[in-house]
């Protein structure tokens, strides 16, 4: 049915007008640019999605205002061992470690150790009730805009990050902490020498 043209080229209209051709060249460039851009974006997204919680390097700096209005900045705490704990009142495993964290804090609070509780995506009322319930006395504040948790790439709560006296990260713990892991890590970090 269909006629096969031996030379289809002859059938076509002659030369396209010049502006048209320029348009199609720019058009092609734009298309290529957009497609490559999209692929690059997806590749970046893939890298982001595969990121694991931070373990080493300088601990990302942050300033946290506590529920009772005090403000701490991580970089001001050089010389101290800092334990950053991400938690939330709605997270059942957090409750498993809460008492142990507080106990450890009381044990070390006069020995150059600072605990920072970062309350991740939580409502204030249940958060305060949680602090009350476990009689938590270390510094605790809400992670406004979840910026801190993003900078540490947390994957969930609870997660605990160990910061040495010089402000570098020394690993993390995913999931609830149980005795004596935290004590051991703190002792280890405290024993490191530190000079300004």
């Amino acid at each position: 049915m269909t006629e096969i043209n031996p030379e289809p080229v002859d059938q076509t209209t002659p030369v396209e007008p010049a502006p048209n051709r320029i348009w199609s060249t720019t058009g092609r460039l734009v298309v290529v640019f957009l497609v490559v851009g999209l692929i690059a974006l997806l590749a970046w997204g893939l890298v982001q999605a595969e990121k694991t919680p931070l373990e080493e390097g300088m601990a990302p700096d942050f300033t946290l205002t506590s529920f009772d209005g005090r403000t701490y900045t991580l970089s001001d705490l050089r010389g101290n061992v800092v334990i950053i704990n991400f938690w939330a009142s709605w997270c059942p495993p957090c409750r498993e470690e809460a008492a142990y964290l507080e106990r450890t804090w009381r044990k070390y609070k006069d020995k150059g150790v600072i605990f920072i509780g970062v309350d991740y995506a939580d409502a204030e009322k249940p958060a305060l009730a949680y602090i009350d319930e476990f009689d938590i006395t270390y510094f605790n504040g809400p992670d406004l805009g979840t910026r801190i948790s993003q900078s540490y790439n947390i994957k969930g709560v609870p997660e605990t990050y160990y910061v040495a006296k010089d402000g570098t990260l020394r690993g993390n713990h995913i999931g609830p902490l149980f005795e004596p892991e935290l004590d051991n890590r703190i002792d280890e970090l405290l024993s490191e020498p530190y000079t300004k």
Binding site: S89, A121, A123, K125, P142, L144, G145, T146
Partner: peptide, 29 residues
């Protein structure tokens, strides 16, 4: 918990806009 929080905020006279702004500050865009 968050819905309870919204209820508390509305009860204390917050407008919808204020509640939403609070959520953005607290938990991000």
């Amino acid at each position: 918990d968050w819905r309870a929080q919204i209820r508390d905020q509305l009860a204390s006279g917050w407008t919808e806009k204020e509640v939403m702004d609070y959520f953005v500050t607290q938990y991000g865009e």
